[in-house]
Simulated scan of single mutants.
Amino acid sequence: MKKKGVLLVNLGSPESPEPKHVKKYLGEFLMDERVIDVPLWARTLLVKGIILNTRPKASAAAYKKIWWENGSPLIVLSEQLQEKVQEQTEYPIALAMRYGSMTIKKGLQELVDKGVDEVFLIPLYPQFAMATTETILVLAESLRKEHFPNLKIDSLPAFYNNPDYITVLANSIQDDLKDKNYDHLLFSYHGVPERHIRKSDITKSHCTIDGSCCKTPSPAHEFCYRHQCFEVTRLIAEKLNLPDDSYSTSFQSRLGFDPWLLPYTDRTIERLGKSGVKNMAIVTPAFVSDCLETLEEIAMEGEELFHEVGGKEFSTVPCLNTNEDWVALLAQWINAWALEPTEA
């Protein structure tokens, strides 16, 4: 009988909000060929020649705004999630980050040291994307081949349209907004370059990003980040009975000058404020744990922008974090996987 264990994997964080640590973290993150997917020479020139000489100071200032006494919010919340899920399953659970000191290699080694020889890898991203899920899976397989050849690794597929997940997310949004006044609910997802969508298209022809491809059934949707984001919005809106004109979808955190997914969150906030929306709420369903992108970019910069264009009340819905139903759902998925017969 194989001994089973679980590895939760999230994005990562600098060791501290100091510029030197932020620079190191950004260097590792942005040099990932699935994050900035250009030839190595061009990526090196862009990241090491330009970005790392200009961005770390500003990013460090942003991290300092949201840093908690006990560390990075993303790390602290992920550790709390790990602890709570562990309480609901008998299988050992380790936590790793794709970037930073909490490496996937360390996470796998922790499980192997406990006698585990079959791992359930859970990328903590509802939607599939090259720069998130794929880079985790590719690195984990590379590490397995090099360091853990006897280890079997299964992974949780993107769960963006899982009915139980949609119920948990919808309930969390409803609970948070029940006593808040808002005219419009904005679903803001992390952005990716349009070329990532085309590269992930297994049909090599479906993803035209023309407004119709995401609504037309296709095998491409299994790996289409854009489709999966719009589908989450649709399913949540349906679950909460939201009127068509009361919500919209946007994408944040673009980098560089290449075309990224539209519409942009900052411009959408500006447009809504200028069009007369006085009270708005934002939910960020690309993240399961609050982090720099939700706590600073949305909750701080987004609110400031909204007020500048005439908006009044601005509410942000927390990520699922350690929501009891979310914890229970993760434990349910883990226990169901562990009961599946192991292939010989």
Rank of each mutant, 00 (worst) to 15 (best):
E134G: 04
L124N: 02
D266T: 13
K178P: 13
C291P: 11
A60Q: 11
P259S: 13
N161G: 08
T316N: 09
H147G: 08
L169M: 11
G191C: 02
I209Y: 07
L108T: 10
V327S: 06
C214N: 07
N171E: 05
N241H: 11
H21P: 10
N181P: 03
S315K: 09
A60L: 15
P193N: 10
S172K: 03
K64L: 08
D210T: 13
V38Q: 04
K180V: 09
G211L: 11
A140L: 00
A331F: 09
G107D: 01
L137F: 12
I136A: 02
V309K: 11
D245M: 13
L255S: 15
L74D: 00
L143F: 05
P14Q: 14
K2A: 13
L255Y: 07
P318Q: 02
E301K: 11
V85T: 09
E296K: 15
K65A: 03
P92L: 13
S248C: 09
L329M: 14
V35C: 04
V168Y: 01
E18N: 09
I209S: 05
C214H: 07
R144N: 04
E146K: 12
A286L: 05
Y182L: 09
P126F: 00
I93G: 01
D210C: 06
E141I: 13
Y225F: 06
C213Q: 05
S315Y: 05
M280G: 04
Y99P: 02
R195M: 12
K105H: 13
H184S: 01
R226N: 03
L320W: 05
P318N: 11
F223P: 12
E141W: 07
E308R: 09
Q88H: 11
T284R: 14
H307V: 06
K312L: 07
E238C: 06
L295D: 01
L139Q: 05
R55H: 06
G311R: 04
S248F: 01
C291F: 00
N161D: 12
A338D: 03
K48H: 15
L240I: 13
I236M: 01
C319F: 11
P318V: 08
Y247E: 04
V277G: 03
Q86A: 06
N161C: 13
L95E: 00
S246L: 05
D37Y: 08
V327R: 02
I166F: 00
F120T: 04
I36K: 04
L156S: 05
K105M: 03
W337H: 03
F287D: 02
L45W: 14
